[in-house]
Design a protein around this nucleic acid. Structure first.
Lengths: 208, 208
DNA sequence: GTAACTTTGTGAAGAAATTCACAAGCCCTC
DNA sequence: GAGGGCTTGTGAATTTCTTCACAAAGTTAC
């Protein structure tokens, strides 16, 4: 398939959000122009983004909301359930495991892992908290699609290596650190500090 | 000043992180090549990023770690303290208000705002939780540099409008929704759902 | 002091992403 | 069923970002 820019994927996610809202309010069709306004972009951009994957619209009318919603879900791989394991039963790990919207999108947290004996063996809702030493072993029985790293910077690379060894091909990293993985493993790093520093930069340079 | 790509700002933040580590381990100088490796980019990219703001290196030697650290802090506006108010005393709002790393970077949370009478009037550490209706009024006395939106999607635009009316020029938005603000106000939206959907997309298209 | 080696800073080239602009298709009205 | 009005899909133009490649400048070793 044609290479898909990261920015396009982000925008498709946004469009999907808008479409779900529009579906709720009963709109049957939507134009690229409306989607563009909602997403803070241009109608040409919307059409280009979609055109990578096919032509879903009707000239003179726009896009059928339910149809495009479905297409976008398919494209983004949201039609199915993903099995997720979270390493780090701290604030972020627990928040994520409990967040209902996460499950609704098809991300099922099968297990939490930690090193703290106080936490190991407990349960959060129905999710077991296990010793991270068991991760590789468990991965042989259970299949994890996505691994979430929610530990401090120091342990992140070790966790990543463990996940890679366990055959996990997609890693979401919340540690404020670049992790290194083989080329066949996908990672995304979410770093709130970075976002705030970008805001700080913008503020510091508002006038210039 | 020359326009600075968003991607450059993100990388500068990354470099700063590495420099702070290098400073800790006592390295006196660092080359663009080393920074590039750490950040998963190329040495030419590192030099271009820096060259937007000046020439900080020494040919044949590299960059002096403490000097470059300082320059980057300046560039990113991290030399000073920013006054932050957070609207929404839920999970995200509270987590942010309590996170020590946040204050260390110069982001001082002066106040939390909420609508829930149960929360209004309480304190988190020394941070007061106030009625959001007071925000505009408070902003006249206290000066808020950055407003954080940590409320559900439904209330986000209203909070944004209130912040804009209160004269806040930089908004960090955690609601899963694009907020609309005048052109002189900077916003950044952090949307974890988007990140996971990007991962889902990558997984769904690994083979293709 | 000189030669060999390193590393920066930066124009120029190349690649990637966005915007423009318009033909083609579809709806709606009369 | 013909004409006017919208909106898509997409090549081409433009803009933006990244990579290349190399002169200039500094360091180190002898």
């Amino acid at each position: 398939m044609k290479r898909v820019p990261d920015s396009t994927v982000r925008r498709l996610s946004l469009y999907l959000g808008f479409l779900e809202e529009l579906e709720g309010s009963g709109d049957a069709t939507v134009s690229s122009d409306v989607l563009a306004r909602l997403g803070g972009t241009t109608s040409a951009q919307v059409r280009k983004d979609l055109s990578i994957f096919g032509s879903f619209g009707k000239r003179g009318l726009g896009y059928f909301v339910p149809e495009l919603t479905g297409k976008l879900r398919d494209i983004l791989g949201l039609g199915r359930d993903w099995h997720v394991c979270i390493v780090g039963a701290g604030k972020i790990g627990l928040a994520l495991a409990q967040y209902p919207g996460f499950r609704e999108k098809g991300f099922h947290v099968s297990a939490l892992y930690d090193t703290s004996p106080a936490k190991i063996g407990s349960r959060l809702d129905s999710i077991p908290v296990r010793d991270v030493a068991r991760l590789a072993l468990d991965a042989e029985r259970e299949h994890f699609d996505i691994g979430v790293i929610a530990v401090p910077a120091g342990g992140a690379q070790w966790v990543a290596d463990t996940m890679v060894a366990a055959g996990i091909k997609a890693i979401m990293n919340f540690a404020p650190l670049q992790i290194v993985v083989p080329p066949d493993v996908v990672t995304r790093t979410v770093n709130m500090g970075l976002e705030f520093e970008a805001l700080s930069f913008a503020l510091a340079n508002l006038s210039k």
